[in-house]
Design a protein around this nucleic acid. Structure first.
Lengths: 197, 197
DNA sequence: GTCACAACATACCGGATGGTCGGTTTTTAT
DNA sequence: ATAAAAACCGACCATCCGGTATGTTGTGAC
């Protein structure tokens, strides 16, 4: 087994991530990525069959990483519900910046691919984030801590609020991740007209 | 004054909107747009100096249209605050579908242009929607109907919630625009843990 | 050491596309 | 009616880039 190969592949995946985050899919050239990875087009095409293939493999790689981190917290169902929600949001907010960017990227690009590939992307994203949020919220609906409503819709709304909280401006206004998470949970559960405890 | 010119320009703007919504910026060719508008490349380049110029003019055209619609409701400050908020969200939800798509488009593409153009796009978008929402929310903060918090951040959060509500799945679950608007306002002001009146 | 194959390098091809340019048609003013 | 200018057309150019083909270098098994 050639071990150097693995290293090259990882370097290419990393370079691809950086480039695709920085520029539009069409504006990233194969040569850009290869150069960034200190490799050649030949090396790149030896490991990946096309530009799309590289994009997809890169996405899978990092989405899987995100998923495995979130899973740990999502599956824990001890303690007060509100706190459990808080912990989930917090661990998400504390993900390294590159992984947050990956999520922005998949949402941005999800419409530019056609259907075999598009579907695979959607599935990977869904299972990395929204499905897990939905599972948590379902528990809250069952226990009555959340008023009856569509669980999927609620999960989208929560994700949307967290996404807003990721903006640099938000972090500047709200401060540390702990404060951000608390603020998001407050708005989501109690609303903006309710006084904070 | 050549009147046919105006008509041609509008047809091209419309074709551009359709194409840019349907496909990625890079995947839309000048010929696509010209063909769709029953015009030629020559005609297009007679009225617009480049692809970017066309994109920008198109955005300005439709964002201005949106802005003028929203302004009317935003500036009305009679009646109960909650109702005023409700009316604003409602009029937004009732915008024609093409205009909703324009907003998705600007958010999607805002990162693919470089800075003179990018900035102009951002400014156009800001004044079309977020600034007006912020103005409304500020009134609620002053009157105490919303608990003290950063107005800009609140406006982003409200916009994010409304955006979720625009998804086809949301409309299917929540029904008519009136019900959608009410649901969004409820979540925003009272939270998901509070029983609906 | 040597053989086989994986890993990598690079010159090249073909197709697509943004933009140009000379010429033609249509519109408007007088 | 006519002339001038705006509007329009479509062939052409230059460039860029994904992908391939062919050759070279490195690695590991024996």
């Amino acid at each position: 087994m050639y071990t150097k190969s693995k290293a090259t592949i990882n370097t290419i995946l990393e370079a691809a991530r950086t480039q695709f985050i920085e520029k539009n899919y069409a504006d990233v050239t194969i040569l850009d990525i290869a150069t960034r990875a200190d490799a050649s087009k030949g090396a790149l095409y030896h490991h990946f069959s096309s530009k799309e293939d590289l994009y997809l493999k890169m996405m899978h790689h990092y989405l899987t990483e995100i998923q495995s981190v979130i899973e740990v917290v999502a599956e824990n169902n001890t303690g007060a519900y509100r706190d459990r929600l808080y912990q989930s949001v917090l661990v998400f907010l504390k993900l390294p910046h590159e992984l947050h960017s990956i999520l922005s990227l998949v949402r941005r690009d999800i419409n530019i691919f056609r259907d075999p590939m598009r579907n695979e992307l959607i599935r990977a994203y869904q299972s990395a984030i929204p499905e897990q949020v939905e599972a948590i919220l379902r528990d809250g609906l069952v226990s009555g801590e959340i008023q009856p409503f569509d669980a999927r819709l609620l999960s989208w709304q929560l994700v949307a609020l967290v996404e807003v909280a990721l903006q640099p401006y938000s972090r500047r206004v709200m401060g540390e991740p702990e404060a951000v998470a608390e603020s998001v949970i407050h708005l989501f559960l109690d609303g903006s007209a309710t006084h904070r405890a």
